Amino acid sequence: MMEHSEDVPGVFTAAGFRRGAVGVLAIVPAAAAFGLVYGVAAAEKGMSLLEVALSCMVIFAGASQLVAMELWREPLPILAMVLSVLVINLRHLLMGATAAPWFRGVPGLPAFASLYFMTDESWGLAVAERRRGQVDAAYMLGAGVSLWVFWLAASMSGHALGDLVRGFDPSLFGWLITGFFVVLLAGFWRGAGDLLPWLVAAGVALATRQVLPGTWFVLTGALAGSLLGAWSHVRRR
């Protein structure tokens, strides 16, 4: 019986890192445009260039940075910002669990560095790479570091542009973020069996947004879809 690719221990090489850094370039324009939007909007909120740079280097999570930026005011609502960012990033628990088999046998430092630079985009590309039978876990780190560089550069450029643009409304670019994730989701499509978990995730997220404030809908939708998908996978095996 052929062993499932998820059960094969990963390796970690410089070649895999380079392949990930190059493989992510196809989606860099969308990520860079997202970064420009963030930088311009941050300038409108009164964030300094240093604050924008630090948020990109340390947090490196576009959705969380946008949520925190929406709450940015004086005095800073620290507790609300921390809770909002925590909730929206809890999905990384599910993403990390999905990537965990790839890092079996990989030393701790490279594995933890890969998780630090893990984003929705680098994770999605890594999952697709794993499904093709590739076992080089450095692919995800290469993709994440490449995105980190472009995200930082684009956000700082957007902040500089924000000094020239007044009255900018970042919500006008909501279509850009939505379209980006639709394209990313389409890359995961494996057949009709994926449809039900996706519909359940969307339905639970929409229902949660109607009854709970904040970003809980991200977690509940992801959890519902993941559990149903995992159950379906176990049944097929």
Rank of each mutant, 00 (worst) to 15 (best):
Met1Lys: 13
Asp7Leu: 13
Val11Lys: 11
Ala15Pro: 09
Phe17Gln: 07
Gly20Trp: 01
Ala21Leu: 09
Ala21Val: 05
Gly23Val: 08
Gly23Ser: 09
Leu25His: 10
Ala26Val: 15
Ala32Phe: 04
Ala33Cys: 15
Phe34Trp: 11
Phe34Gln: 00
Phe34Glu: 00
Leu36Ala: 01
Val37Met: 00
Val40Lys: 00
Ala41Met: 00
Ala43Phe: 04
Gly46Ser: 06
Met47Gln: 05
Leu49Gln: 10
Leu49Thr: 10
Leu49Ala: 15
Leu50Met: 10
Glu51His: 09
Met57Asp: 07
Leu66Cys: 08
Val67Arg: 02
Glu70Gln: 15
Leu71Arg: 06
Pro75Arg: 05
Leu76Arg: 11
Leu79Asp: 10
Leu79Pro: 04
Ala80Asp: 12
Val85Ser: 09
Val85Lys: 02
His92Pro: 03
His92Gln: 09
Met95Asp: 01
Gly96Trp: 03
Ala100Pro: 06
Ala100Asn: 10
Trp102Ile: 07
Phe103Cys: 02
Arg104Ile: 11
Leu109Gln: 12
Phe112Tyr: 15
Ala113Pro: 06
Leu115Asn: 12
Met118Phe: 13
Glu121Leu: 14
Ser122Met: 05
Val135Gln: 14
Ala137Cys: 06
Ala137Asp: 02
Met140Thr: 13
Gly142Glu: 04
Gly144His: 02
Leu147Trp: 01
Leu147Met: 12
Trp151Cys: 03
Leu152Tyr: 07
Ser155Tyr: 02
His159Trp: 12
Leu164Ser: 14
Gly167Ser: 05
Phe173Tyr: 14
Gly174Ser: 11
Gly174Tyr: 03
Gly179Ile: 08
Phe180Cys: 15
Val183Arg: 14
Val183Pro: 09
Leu184Gly: 09
Leu185Tyr: 08
Gly191Cys: 06
Leu195Val: 15
Leu196Lys: 12
Leu196Asn: 08
Leu199Val: 14
Leu199Arg: 08
Ala202Tyr: 11
Ala202Val: 15
Val204Leu: 01
Leu206Ser: 10
Leu206Asn: 06
Ala207Trp: 06
Val211Ile: 13
Val211Phe: 07
Leu212Cys: 08
Trp216Gln: 06
Gly221Glu: 02
Ala222Val: 01
Leu223Ile: 01
Ser226Gly: 06
Leu227Ser: 00
Trp231Ala: 12
Val234Asp: 10
Arg235Phe: 03
Arg236Gly: 04
